[in-house]
Design a protein around this nucleic acid. Structure first.
Lengths: 156, 156
DNA sequence: TTTAAAATCACCCTAAAGTATGAGCCTAAA
DNA sequence: TTTAGGCTCATACTTTAGGGTGATTTTAAA
Protein backbone atom coordinates (compact mmCIF):
# COMPACT_ATOMS: atom_id res chain seq x y z
CA UNK A 1 0.00 0.00 0.00
CA UNK A 2 2.80 2.39 0.95
CA UNK A 3 4.75 1.25 -2.06
CA UNK A 4 1.92 1.69 -4.48
CA UNK A 5 1.34 5.11 -2.97
CA UNK A 6 4.96 5.98 -3.67
CA UNK A 7 4.78 4.88 -7.25
CA UNK A 8 1.43 6.38 -8.00
CA UNK A 9 2.29 9.74 -6.52
CA UNK A 10 5.85 9.93 -7.69
CA UNK A 11 5.26 13.24 -9.42
CA UNK A 12 3.94 14.80 -6.25
CA UNK A 13 6.86 13.48 -4.24
CA UNK A 14 9.35 14.79 -6.76
CA UNK A 15 7.63 18.13 -6.54
CA UNK A 16 7.94 18.11 -2.78
CA UNK A 17 11.60 17.21 -2.97
CA UNK A 18 12.20 19.99 -5.44
CA UNK A 19 10.52 22.40 -3.06
CA UNK A 20 12.80 21.30 -0.23
CA UNK A 21 15.88 21.73 -2.38
CA UNK A 22 14.73 25.16 -3.41
CA UNK A 23 14.16 26.19 0.17
CA UNK A 24 17.72 25.18 1.00
CA UNK A 25 18.93 27.08 -2.02
CA UNK A 26 16.92 30.01 -0.77
CA UNK A 27 18.62 29.91 2.61
CA UNK A 28 21.98 29.74 0.91
CA UNK A 29 21.10 32.64 -1.34
CA UNK A 30 20.15 34.72 1.69
CA UNK A 31 23.80 34.79 2.56
CA UNK A 32 24.80 36.16 -0.75
CA UNK A 33 22.26 38.47 -2.18
CA UNK A 34 23.34 41.33 0.02
CA UNK A 35 26.39 41.89 -2.07
CA UNK A 36 24.61 42.04 -5.37
CA UNK A 37 22.50 44.94 -6.54
CA UNK A 38 18.87 44.01 -7.11
CA UNK A 39 19.67 40.58 -5.82
CA UNK A 40 16.22 40.26 -4.34
CA UNK A 41 14.51 40.95 -7.60
CA UNK A 42 16.74 38.46 -9.31
CA UNK A 43 15.99 35.95 -6.65
CA UNK A 44 12.26 36.51 -6.88
CA UNK A 45 12.43 36.32 -10.66
CA UNK A 46 14.33 33.08 -10.49
CA UNK A 47 11.81 31.70 -8.04
CA UNK A 48 8.96 32.74 -10.29
CA UNK A 49 10.49 31.12 -13.33
CA UNK A 50 11.41 27.94 -11.55
CA UNK A 51 8.02 27.52 -9.98
CA UNK A 52 6.26 28.36 -13.19
CA UNK A 53 8.22 25.62 -14.90
CA UNK A 54 7.48 23.28 -12.02
CA UNK A 55 3.81 24.10 -12.33
CA UNK A 56 3.86 23.43 -16.04
CA UNK A 57 5.66 20.18 -15.51
CA UNK A 58 3.24 19.18 -12.78
CA UNK A 59 0.27 19.98 -14.93
CA UNK A 60 1.61 17.98 -17.83
CA UNK A 61 2.39 15.06 -15.58
CA UNK A 62 -0.89 14.96 -13.80
CA UNK A 63 -3.40 15.64 -16.50
CA UNK A 64 -5.14 12.55 -17.72
CA UNK A 65 -5.34 11.97 -21.40
CA UNK A 66 -8.84 12.37 -22.68
CA UNK A 67 -10.12 9.53 -24.73
CA UNK A 68 -11.58 10.41 -28.01
CA UNK A 69 -13.03 8.06 -30.48
CA UNK A 70 -11.87 8.21 -34.03
CA UNK A 71 -13.72 6.24 -36.61
CA UNK A 72 -11.39 4.91 -39.21
CA UNK A 73 -12.75 3.47 -42.37
CA UNK A 74 -11.21 0.16 -43.15
CA UNK A 75 -11.18 -1.36 -46.55
CA UNK A 76 -12.56 -4.80 -46.96
CA UNK A 77 -11.80 -6.28 -50.29
CA UNK A 78 -14.61 -8.29 -51.66
CA UNK A 79 -14.66 -10.24 -54.83
CA UNK A 80 -17.53 -8.80 -56.75
CA UNK A 81 -17.22 -10.98 -59.77
CA UNK A 82 -20.80 -12.05 -59.43
CA UNK A 83 -21.35 -15.76 -59.36
CA UNK A 84 -22.99 -17.51 -62.28
CA UNK A 85 -23.96 -21.13 -61.76
CA UNK A 86 -22.48 -23.49 -64.29
CA UNK A 87 -25.65 -25.42 -65.02
CA UNK A 88 -24.20 -27.61 -67.73
CA UNK A 89 -21.58 -28.91 -65.38
CA UNK A 90 -24.20 -29.37 -62.70
CA UNK A 91 -26.33 -31.48 -65.00
CA UNK A 92 -23.38 -33.43 -66.21
CA UNK A 93 -22.42 -34.32 -62.65
CA UNK A 94 -26.00 -35.02 -61.68
CA UNK A 95 -25.91 -33.37 -58.28
CA UNK A 96 -29.35 -33.26 -56.70
CA UNK A 97 -30.89 -30.20 -55.04
CA UNK A 98 -30.24 -31.52 -51.57
CA UNK A 99 -26.70 -32.44 -52.41
CA UNK A 100 -26.08 -28.93 -53.65
CA UNK A 101 -27.43 -27.50 -50.43
CA UNK A 102 -25.12 -29.69 -48.44
CA UNK A 103 -22.20 -28.77 -50.66
CA UNK A 104 -22.84 -25.08 -50.20
CA UNK A 105 -23.08 -25.35 -46.43
CA UNK A 106 -19.90 -27.41 -46.41
CA UNK A 107 -18.20 -24.60 -48.29
CA UNK A 108 -19.36 -22.14 -45.65
CA UNK A 109 -17.41 -24.13 -43.13
CA UNK A 110 -20.25 -25.91 -41.40
CA UNK A 111 -19.68 -29.32 -39.86
CA UNK A 112 -21.91 -32.22 -40.80
CA UNK A 113 -23.64 -31.82 -37.48
CA UNK A 114 -24.33 -28.16 -38.11
CA UNK A 115 -25.59 -28.88 -41.61
CA UNK A 116 -27.91 -31.51 -40.20
CA UNK A 117 -29.35 -29.02 -37.76
CA UNK A 118 -29.66 -26.37 -40.42
CA UNK A 119 -31.58 -28.67 -42.73
CA UNK A 120 -33.57 -30.37 -39.95
CA UNK A 121 -32.34 -33.83 -40.81
CA UNK A 122 -30.11 -36.34 -39.07
CA UNK A 123 -26.36 -36.44 -39.10
CA UNK A 124 -26.48 -39.75 -40.94
CA UNK A 125 -28.49 -38.20 -43.71
CA UNK A 126 -25.88 -35.53 -44.17
CA UNK A 127 -23.20 -38.16 -44.24
CA UNK A 128 -25.06 -39.97 -46.95
CA UNK A 129 -25.49 -36.77 -48.94
CA UNK A 130 -21.88 -35.75 -48.59
CA UNK A 131 -20.72 -39.20 -49.62
CA UNK A 132 -22.84 -38.91 -52.73
CA UNK A 133 -21.42 -35.49 -53.41
CA UNK A 134 -17.89 -36.84 -53.12
CA UNK A 135 -18.71 -39.71 -55.44
CA UNK A 136 -20.20 -37.44 -58.05
CA UNK A 137 -17.39 -34.95 -57.84
CA UNK A 138 -14.88 -37.79 -57.75
CA UNK A 139 -13.18 -36.60 -54.62
CA UNK A 140 -12.84 -38.03 -51.16
CA UNK A 141 -12.73 -35.06 -48.85
CA UNK A 142 -14.98 -32.12 -48.28
CA UNK A 143 -12.13 -29.69 -48.82
CA UNK A 144 -11.50 -31.20 -52.24
CA UNK A 145 -15.18 -31.06 -52.99
CA UNK A 146 -15.31 -27.39 -52.09
CA UNK A 147 -12.25 -26.60 -54.16
CA UNK A 148 -13.53 -28.48 -57.18
CA UNK A 149 -17.05 -27.08 -56.90
CA UNK A 150 -15.68 -23.56 -56.78
CA UNK A 151 -13.46 -24.14 -59.75
CA UNK A 152 -16.41 -25.53 -61.68
CA UNK A 153 -18.59 -22.60 -60.62
CA UNK A 154 -21.07 -24.79 -58.86
CA UNK A 155 -20.84 -22.62 -55.77
CA UNK A 156 -19.68 -19.00 -55.28
CA UNK B 1 -3.14 41.02 -37.73
CA UNK B 2 -2.54 42.72 -34.40
CA UNK B 3 -6.02 41.80 -33.32
CA UNK B 4 -5.74 38.20 -34.28
CA UNK B 5 -2.43 38.12 -32.47
CA UNK B 6 -4.18 39.43 -29.38
CA UNK B 7 -6.90 36.83 -29.49
CA UNK B 8 -4.68 33.95 -30.34
CA UNK B 9 -2.17 34.73 -27.63
CA UNK B 10 -4.58 35.86 -25.01
CA UNK B 11 -3.27 33.32 -22.53
CA UNK B 12 0.24 34.62 -22.92
CA UNK B 13 -0.91 38.18 -22.48
CA UNK B 14 -2.87 37.30 -19.39
CA UNK B 15 0.19 35.61 -18.03
CA UNK B 16 2.26 38.73 -18.73
CA UNK B 17 -0.31 40.91 -17.03
CA UNK B 18 -0.39 38.63 -14.04
CA UNK B 19 3.37 38.87 -13.84
CA UNK B 20 3.21 42.63 -13.85
CA UNK B 21 0.58 42.62 -11.11
CA UNK B 22 2.68 40.27 -9.06
CA UNK B 23 5.73 42.46 -9.46
CA UNK B 24 3.73 45.39 -8.14
CA UNK B 25 2.51 43.26 -5.29
CA UNK B 26 6.10 42.32 -4.67
CA UNK B 27 7.13 45.93 -4.48
CA UNK B 28 4.29 46.64 -2.08
CA UNK B 29 5.20 43.70 0.03
CA UNK B 30 8.75 44.97 0.25
CA UNK B 31 7.38 47.79 2.34
CA UNK B 32 5.81 45.51 4.78
CA UNK B 33 7.79 42.39 5.26
CA UNK B 34 10.27 44.06 7.56
CA UNK B 35 7.77 44.10 10.37
CA UNK B 36 6.87 40.44 10.19
CA UNK B 37 9.08 37.63 11.39
CA UNK B 38 10.12 35.29 8.62
CA UNK B 39 8.38 37.57 6.19
CA UNK B 40 10.86 36.69 3.49
CA UNK B 41 10.18 33.02 3.73
CA UNK B 42 6.47 33.66 3.63
CA UNK B 43 6.93 35.88 0.65
CA UNK B 44 9.04 33.33 -1.15
CA UNK B 45 6.56 30.61 -0.32
CA UNK B 46 3.68 32.69 -1.59
CA UNK B 47 5.62 33.40 -4.75
CA UNK B 48 6.33 29.72 -5.20
CA UNK B 49 2.71 28.74 -4.77
CA UNK B 50 1.40 31.47 -7.00
CA UNK B 51 3.81 30.76 -9.79
CA UNK B 52 3.26 27.07 -9.53
CA UNK B 53 -0.45 27.66 -9.98
CA UNK B 54 0.29 30.02 -12.84
CA UNK B 55 2.47 27.38 -14.43
CA UNK B 56 -0.23 24.79 -14.07
CA UNK B 57 -2.80 27.15 -15.51
CA UNK B 58 -0.49 28.06 -18.37
CA UNK B 59 0.21 24.45 -19.18
CA UNK B 60 -3.45 23.56 -19.17
CA UNK B 61 -4.30 26.53 -21.35
CA UNK B 62 -1.57 26.11 -23.88
CA UNK B 63 -1.36 22.42 -24.37
CA UNK B 64 -4.00 20.86 -26.45
CA UNK B 65 -5.67 18.07 -24.58
CA UNK B 66 -3.86 14.78 -24.73
CA UNK B 67 -5.95 12.26 -26.50
CA UNK B 68 -5.98 8.54 -26.38
CA UNK B 69 -7.18 7.60 -29.80
CA UNK B 70 -9.64 4.76 -29.79
CA UNK B 71 -9.93 3.42 -33.28
CA UNK B 72 -13.26 2.05 -34.27
CA UNK B 73 -13.07 0.37 -37.59
CA UNK B 74 -15.85 0.85 -39.99
CA UNK B 75 -15.86 -1.49 -42.90
CA UNK B 76 -16.04 -0.15 -46.37
CA UNK B 77 -16.44 -2.61 -49.15
CA UNK B 78 -14.01 -2.29 -51.98
CA UNK B 79 -14.36 -4.35 -55.07
CA UNK B 80 -11.55 -6.04 -56.93
CA UNK B 81 -11.58 -8.55 -59.69
CA UNK B 82 -8.47 -10.62 -59.17
CA UNK B 83 -6.66 -11.88 -56.18
CA UNK B 84 -4.48 -9.43 -54.35
CA UNK B 85 -3.03 -10.55 -51.05
CA UNK B 86 -4.46 -8.53 -48.21
CA UNK B 87 -1.18 -7.89 -46.47
CA UNK B 88 -2.62 -5.68 -43.78
CA UNK B 89 -4.94 -8.41 -42.68
CA UNK B 90 -2.15 -10.93 -42.88
CA UNK B 91 0.01 -8.82 -40.61
CA UNK B 92 -2.84 -8.18 -38.26
CA UNK B 93 -3.51 -11.88 -37.92
CA UNK B 94 0.18 -12.68 -37.65
CA UNK B 95 0.16 -15.78 -39.81
CA UNK B 96 3.67 -17.05 -40.44
CA UNK B 97 5.05 -18.13 -43.80
CA UNK B 98 4.73 -21.80 -42.99
CA UNK B 99 1.22 -21.37 -41.66
CA UNK B 100 0.24 -19.67 -44.91
CA UNK B 101 1.67 -22.55 -46.92
CA UNK B 102 -0.33 -25.02 -44.89
CA UNK B 103 -3.44 -22.90 -45.23
CA UNK B 104 -3.06 -22.78 -49.00
CA UNK B 105 -2.58 -26.52 -49.30
CA UNK B 106 -5.57 -27.08 -47.06
CA UNK B 107 -7.60 -24.91 -49.41
CA UNK B 108 -6.48 -27.05 -52.31
CA UNK B 109 -8.11 -29.98 -50.60
CA UNK B 110 -5.04 -31.78 -49.31
CA UNK B 111 -5.26 -33.84 -46.14
CA UNK B 112 -2.85 -33.17 -43.33
CA UNK B 113 -0.96 -36.27 -44.34
CA UNK B 114 -0.61 -35.06 -47.91
CA UNK B 115 0.48 -31.63 -46.76
CA UNK B 116 3.11 -33.23 -44.53
CA UNK B 117 4.49 -35.18 -47.49
CA UNK B 118 4.41 -32.13 -49.72
CA UNK B 119 6.37 -30.05 -47.23
CA UNK B 120 8.67 -32.89 -46.13
CA UNK B 121 7.71 -32.64 -42.48
CA UNK B 122 5.81 -34.89 -40.11
CA UNK B 123 2.06 -35.14 -39.75
CA UNK B 124 2.33 -33.78 -36.22
CA UNK B 125 4.05 -30.68 -37.47
CA UNK B 126 1.21 -30.04 -39.87
CA UNK B 127 -1.26 -30.54 -37.08
CA UNK B 128 0.55 -27.97 -35.01
CA UNK B 129 0.61 -25.53 -37.90
CA UNK B 130 -3.04 -25.98 -38.71
CA UNK B 131 -3.99 -25.57 -35.07
CA UNK B 132 -2.11 -22.27 -35.03
CA UNK B 133 -3.86 -21.22 -38.20
CA UNK B 134 -7.23 -21.98 -36.66
CA UNK B 135 -6.34 -20.06 -33.54
CA UNK B 136 -5.21 -17.03 -35.46
CA UNK B 137 -8.22 -17.09 -37.74
CA UNK B 138 -10.46 -17.77 -34.77
CA UNK B 139 -12.05 -20.82 -36.30
CA UNK B 140 -12.07 -24.50 -35.41
CA UNK B 141 -12.28 -26.35 -38.68
CA UNK B 142 -10.25 -26.30 -41.85
CA UNK B 143 -13.31 -25.57 -43.95
CA UNK B 144 -14.02 -22.49 -41.86
CA UNK B 145 -10.39 -21.46 -42.11
CA UNK B 146 -10.49 -21.77 -45.89
CA UNK B 147 -13.74 -19.83 -46.13
CA UNK B 148 -12.50 -17.04 -43.90
CA UNK B 149 -9.09 -16.86 -45.54
CA UNK B 150 -10.72 -16.51 -48.94
CA UNK B 151 -13.07 -13.83 -47.72
CA UNK B 152 -10.13 -11.93 -46.24
CA UNK B 153 -8.13 -12.38 -49.44
CA UNK B 154 -5.37 -14.27 -47.74
CA UNK B 155 -5.60 -16.99 -50.38
CA UNK B 156 -7.02 -16.95 -53.91
C1' DT C 1 23.99 -11.94 -25.45
C1' DT C 2 19.57 -12.49 -24.13
C1' DT C 3 15.00 -12.73 -25.72
C1' DA C 4 11.26 -13.96 -28.69
C1' DA C 5 9.12 -16.09 -32.30
C1' DA C 6 9.12 -19.91 -35.75
C1' DA C 7 9.42 -24.36 -36.88
C1' DT C 8 9.84 -28.88 -35.74
C1' DC C 9 8.08 -33.26 -33.50
C1' DA C 10 5.76 -36.42 -30.04
C1' DC C 11 1.92 -38.40 -27.34
C1' DC C 12 -2.70 -38.76 -25.87
C1' DC C 13 -7.33 -38.41 -26.32
C1' DT C 14 -11.81 -36.85 -28.32
C1' DA C 15 -14.55 -35.38 -32.06
C1' DA C 16 -15.62 -35.30 -36.76
C1' DA C 17 -15.49 -37.09 -41.18
C1' DG C 18 -15.75 -40.66 -44.34
C1' DT C 19 -16.98 -45.69 -46.00
C1' DA C 20 -20.01 -49.51 -46.55
C1' DT C 21 -24.29 -51.50 -46.44
C1' DG C 22 -29.07 -51.86 -45.95
C1' DA C 23 -33.62 -50.11 -45.75
C1' DG C 24 -38.09 -47.39 -45.71
C1' DC C 25 -40.77 -43.57 -47.84
C1' DC C 26 -42.30 -40.45 -51.49
C1' DT C 27 -42.94 -38.74 -56.05
C1' DA C 28 -42.73 -38.37 -60.93
C1' DA C 29 -42.28 -40.85 -65.05
C1' DA C 30 -42.77 -44.95 -67.87
C1' DT D 1 -48.78 -49.67 -61.24
C1' DT D 2 -44.28 -50.60 -61.46
C1' DT D 3 -39.99 -48.28 -61.21
C1' DA D 4 -36.15 -45.21 -60.66
C1' DG D 5 -34.30 -41.48 -58.31
C1' DG D 6 -34.20 -38.67 -54.46
C1' DC D 7 -34.40 -38.20 -49.57
C1' DT D 8 -34.36 -40.02 -45.30
C1' DC D 9 -32.18 -42.78 -41.46
C1' DA D 10 -29.49 -46.56 -39.06
C1' DT D 11 -25.48 -49.37 -37.60
C1' DA D 12 -20.78 -50.44 -37.71
C1' DC D 13 -16.30 -49.44 -38.65
C1' DT D 14 -12.01 -46.80 -40.23
C1' DT D 15 -9.62 -42.70 -41.03
C1' DT D 16 -8.75 -38.00 -40.47
C1' DA D 17 -8.99 -33.89 -37.93
C1' DG D 18 -8.59 -31.25 -33.90
C1' DG D 19 -7.32 -30.01 -28.88
C1' DG D 20 -3.96 -29.93 -25.21
C1' DT D 21 0.57 -30.20 -23.52
C1' DG D 22 5.34 -30.19 -23.65
C1' DA D 23 9.88 -30.19 -25.70
C1' DT D 24 13.82 -29.12 -28.87
C1' DT D 25 16.02 -26.50 -32.29
C1' DT D 26 16.50 -22.57 -35.60
C1' DT D 27 16.29 -18.09 -36.68
C1' DA D 28 15.64 -13.26 -36.07
C1' DA D 29 15.48 -9.23 -33.41
C1' DA D 30 16.59 -6.25 -29.55
Amino acid sequence: MTLSFLTRNRSVLIYGASLAVLLLLMKWLEWHFIIIDHAFELYAGALAIIFTLLGIWLALKLTRPKTNTVIVEKEVIVKTAHFILNEKELQKLGLSKREMEVLQLMAEGLSNHEIAERLFVSLNTIKTHSSKVFEKLEVNRRTQAIDKAKKLNLIP
